[in-house]
Amino acid sequence: MSDPGLRRGYVSADRTAASHLAFIPAFYYVIRIMLSFEDTGIILSLRPHGENGGVVTLLTRAHGRAAGYVYGISSSRLRGTLEIGNVVSASWQAKSHDQLGTYTLELDESHTADVLSDPVRLTALQSACVLADKTLPERESHPGVFEGMRALLASFATDVWPAAYIYWEIGLLKELGFGLDLTRCVATGTNENLIYVSPRSGCAVSAGAGEEYKDRLLHLPPFLRGEARFENEDILHGLQLTGHFLLHRVFSLANTNLPEPRLRLEEKYGRLVKA
């Protein structure tokens, strides 16, 4: 830091780097990438920090889950923006890649109005955000999860959102390395009459092959086999299916239970089925 230009922020740092390291263009490029980025992100969490600021975690398209400090979280400009599930244009800056950095955010899409009045949709939104926040590694790109979550957020304005939610959790499991094979029976190889899933392998099981073990197998809801219609019971089975693998393959590794909103979502569907 002997050069005073380095203290003046990232633009100056770039220029200095350009003058000293012009003979290594690749290194210059890395420095630029580490110091700032602009991306589209979904707000996963907001933690107030100090009097006027907060640490916001975004799921960005190209930079994965990335946190940053936001100034003035209670200002009138940001009041409607900083809600989980909102899609924002984010500009992140830091002096070095290992710092928290600061975000400048601008609202692109708000999904708050679609979920505020419906307790089940609201719980599903919280569940999706907290699952992405707790399971995805930091600053590692997962464009599939990002695009899936964007589609899920858009689906909250429609009636097919419960199925979209289950598909998103299956996609999240796959991205984390625990993909489910629901296309053919693990015992017989058939792709017909698949109604169970093995809790060990995560593969589908046909009605005939699973008859003997049906008490220990998970239900495979018909909409996951391509059927268009679904009932509340199917969604409950879907939640139990993905919940089992999220708990045993992801959260149990950290000795924790499923996040509270995810438990509440399953409980709400349990009550809807009983009613």
Binding site: R79, G80, T81, E83, N86, L107, E109, S110, T112, A113, D114, L116, S117
Partner: peptide, 10 residues
């Protein structure tokens, strides 16, 4: 903002 307007419409 979009959220307030959408809620007001609803």
């Amino acid at each position: 903002d979009d959220g307030t307007l959408a809620t007001a419409l609803k």
